[in-house]
Design a protein around this nucleic acid. Structure first.
Lengths: 222, 222
DNA sequence: GGAGACACCCCAGGATCATGGGGCCAGGAC
DNA sequence: GTCCTGGCCCCATGATCCTGGGGTGTCTCC
């Protein structure tokens, strides 16, 4: 919009293919609100650059001559909260998952069009997570394996109140503490517990939590 | 590329806003390789349409006058393997997760540019999962909670034996049962418990399990 | 207008757990 | 050699939990 917009976000590039690196530099230089912090072709060079340049985001390739971009990300994340966007040709399951595990904030394939890439960079700096449709597929599969489908959840089994109690229990609270939070008598908590144990056919709180988790009544991190 | 490319993929639309519906119809009609199977503004109408039209993919809104698009998807997925792409203004955590739970194959916000939308449709039919960066963020958070970062796990905190005990506890076992499985005295279990509580700074087994889960020492379903 | 489900309150006894103490033995670190 | 850590065993006491019982009031559904 403005002819002289201030550069707000500094971007670092870690990519060994000279041609592609030039192409990325071009995109960043031409984009409003983005500036080039550094551009390097090796992990070693990028680490040196990080010392003085303090980019808001790094575009990182995976396969580099002197190591993996993932190691660079893991190292970087331990040092400072710079955001990292993976840009690679590798679309396989292992690459995607280990990239996200190592702390990447997004995963794009190299065939991403320039405009979409620019949007992805901005979104990542804003705290969002751009994923290539291919990468997202793997993530969704894990999600589906972890969180049972809606129809598998029998909401009618436990009442809303009972689930509340169970969630608090799962965080380690005692009868007294739970009663305090729910603003009821500790005796009442005991009543809910009776109902819950009965319905789930268990005899201790830990069993109940385990069972409820398996049934999808409470989520990994409620 | 070709002037007379065959229509390969039929698309159904479920969207109550007439203006947006027209806009979507236009995108599909103008896109190569895509054709309009049906376009409806209510869940009821869409269900009727599904009887004769057999689209390869449905674009689905969440908030509809006679119900939720998610219910439509759940119904549809139970009937046939049609792919479903959510197109909504809702970007909150709950909407995203329940959409993916109900079987959606992608989740896009309504401000997605036309070209990107077209690409997303094609990608979804190809079996990929286009997610808006916002939606992907929630999914990634769950992923991180489920599969802890490799370096985040501090194996040295708890000994192997202590983790064994904690895992058994997390499945609802008592001192005696745990002792039976590990072939040690119940008193010894008490000793491990002391050590665990001390290291994790907690005072009950449920707290310990919660803490250990957060630290990635034990997995959701060990 | 009762039957049933849910939210809420109370009591009591026996089981289990939490946590303090006491030890023994093996293996690595200093 | 000594120190420390981890695996293993034992005991005792008070706190907490589990589970049986006894109630009240509000809904909704038939």
């Amino acid at each position: 919009m403005t002819g002289a917009s201030p550069i707000v976000s500094q971007i670092g590039i870690l990519e060994d293919d000279p041609e592609l690196r030039l192409y990325l530099e071009q995109i960043i230089n031409e984009a409003e609100g983005l500036g080039l912090a550094f551009s390097s072709g090796t992990v070693a060079a990028a680490r040196t650059c990080m010392a003085d340049a303090r980019p808001d985001l790094c575009l990182v390739d995976i396969g580099l001559p002197d190591g993996s971009g993932l190691d660079f990300i893991a190292w970087l994340k331990a040092e400072q909260p710079t955001r990292c966007l993976i840009l690679t040709v590798l679309g396989d399951r292992e690459s995607v998952l280990s990239a996200l595990r190592s702390g990447a904030d997004g995963y794009l394939l190299k065939d991403t069009p320039p405009e979409q890439l620019r949007r992805a960079i901005v979104a990542t700096i804003a705290g969002e997570t751009p994923l290539s449709p291919q990468a997202a597929t793997y993530l969704l599969n894990i999600f589906k394996a972890t969180v049972p489908a809606l129809e598998a959840i029998d909401d009618s089994l436990l009442s809303a109140r009972e689930i509340e109690v169970l969630k608090l229990f799962s965080r380690g609270l005692s009868y007294r503490e739970t009663a305090g939070i729910l603003q009821v008598s500790p005796h009442t908590i005991g009543d809910y517990v009776k109902a819950i144990y009965g319905k789930l056919s268990v005899h201790s709180r830990t069993e109940a939590i385990f069972e409820a988790r398996q049934l999808g009544l409470i989520r990994p991190l409620d």
